[in-house]
Each structure stands twice: as C-alpha cells, then as structure tokens.
C-alpha cells in the first residue's frame, strides 16, 4: 500500500496517470495470498483463478445452455406463460396492497374523518391538505370541509393509514391511476370517498384485516347488507316517484 505522489492541490486538473501503477491491480492471485488472511479463513484449499477446461474452450457447454432455453421455450409454448395479460387479467395482490386512498364513510354516508390532522402530520411527503369545520353533532365535533391528497406527491407509504385513529382513511387495491393534466391530480373529498365499499375484495392497506378479526368482518358484512338494502330502497323510491310524475 504505497503512497501517492504529492499532488498539486485543489485547483489542479485530475490526472489519472499520476497515480502510480499499483501492482495491486491486475495481478493474478497465487498461493501466497491464502497465507495473508490466515486467522480469518480456514479454507482447506487455494482456489486458483478460473482456468477454462478443454470442453469450455471448445464452446461445448453452450449446448447445455441452448437446451435450457429450449426447455423454457417448449414449456412456454405448450404450457402456461408466466405473463399476466393486463388489462384483461389482473394480478391478485393481497388485501394489504397500498393503492389509491379511500376516505371511509359512516353508515349515513358522511365522512368518518374528524379532521384531527394526524395523517397530515404523519405524511412524509406532506401531501395531505385538510381544512376543518365544526360538525353539528357535538359527539363528532369536527369534520373536514376540504380533504385533498396530492396524488403526484404521495409515496403510498401508508403512514396516513397507520396514523388515523378513526379508521377514516384506508387504502384500496386499485393501482390504475394516470392523469393527463396537472389539475386532475389533486384528489378531493368526493373522489376519495367514492370508492369506499364494505366489499373486502376491493380494499387494501388498512388497520384490521378479516383474518385477524372475524367479528369485525361479520360486522362489516352486516353493515354492507344494511347499506345495500338502504340504497336499493332509495333507488326503488326514486323510481316510484319518477313513475308517478
């Protein structure tokens, strides 16, 4: 480990030739090398640098390689391809997938969020913007008038979901997001509330999962049925009213 020749200091242009030709580069290792690190390694033999054998010099192992690729080819031709044919086929991501955010709703359809600002504080990208207002119901106190997530800033880390004490923000398993204009990219309250569903298959990263909490899953199913029934009743009423008019 020899010293470098003294250099001229900061302003001099870089000169790679002035670094001496170390014999440390391009030197073939030999038997003496094993001894240098004795005490660190108990290798039973010294591995010489790789010397190709005769068969390798004659390119014979290439035949083995070609057989490997042939095997893959035949398997793919007559068997199942590993390719997922998006958009017709979609990959089954787990129900922990961190996709598009969802603002959950109460059974009456209003947003569950109480504008506590924990998600905005936890977000490393500072992409959540909330403006709070007073909620008429004294038990709920606050609700967000404005709840916006800048989808282009979001890094989909799930910290907002971890931070929320109300299970008001969760994530779905939807990853189909692409925008043409910058003004489409801020997801407001309406857009975030729209995909909320009690259907577990469409949900992603959230605090509690069905396998951990069967009781909760049952409650969600019942809530789903209730909401569905209410929606259908409303739809029937609307239809009746429209028919009467």
């Amino acid at each position: 480990m020899s010293a470098l020749p003294s250099s001229t200091g900061g302003a001099a242009p870089f000169d790679s030739t002035r670094i001496e030709q170390d014999e440390g580069f391009r030197r073939r290792p030999n038997a003496a090398d094993a001894g240098k690190w004795q005490g660190l390694a108990n290798h039973p033999k010294v591995t010489r640098p790789y010397r190709p054998r005769v068969a390798e010099r004659l390119y014979l192992p290439l035949v083995g390689g070609l057989l490997v690729t042939l095997r893959h080819f035949v398997r793919n031709l007559f068997g199942k391809l590993p390719t997922i044919q998006y958009p017709e086929e979609r990959r089954n991501y787990s129900h922990r997938f961190r996709g598009h955010h969802i603002l959950t709703t109460r059974p009456d359809g209003s947003v569950r969020c109480v504008a506590c600002y924990l998600c905005a504080q936890a977000c490393p990208a500072e992409c959540i913007h909330i403006e709070a207002a007073e909620h008429p119901d004294v038990n709920i106190e606050k609700y967000p008038v404005v709840y916006e997530i800048d989808m282009l800033r979001c890094i989909f880390c799930g910290y907002c979901v971890d931070a929320c004490p109300e299970e008001a923000i969760i994530m779905s398993n939807n990853y189909d997001m692409a925008y043409f204009h910058r003004d489409q990219t801020i997801a407001g309250k309406a857009e975030l509330m729209k995909p909320f569903t009690f259907d577990e298959n469409l949900l992603g990263y959230r605090p509690r999962y069905p396998e951990e909490d069967a009781k909760r899953a049952k409650m969600r199913r019942e809530a789903f049925n209730l909401v569905e029934a209410a929606r259908q009743a409303k739809a029937k009423e609307e239809a009746a009213r429209a028919a009467a008019v």
Binding site: M1, G24, R26, K36, P49, E56, L58, L62, G64, V68
Partner: peptide, 30 residues
C-alpha cells in the same frame, strides 16, 4: 440453476470476464 448453466462455463462469458477489472484483496481493502 438455469442461469448458472447458461453462463458459468460459457466461453463467451469466460473470455469477457476472467481477469477483467481484477483487484487484489489488499488493494480492495485500501
């Protein structure tokens, strides 16, 4: 295994990589 079979005794790869950019242990540590 497949990649090893394709590459490790492949003379094309051997010619391209054995002895290329070699560095000794002490130099590397330094």
């Amino acid at each position: 295994d497949d990649v090893e079979r394709l590459v490790e005794k492949n003379r094309i790869w051997i010619d391209r990589s054995v002895g290329v950019a070699a560095i000794s242990g002490e130099e590397a540590v330094n």
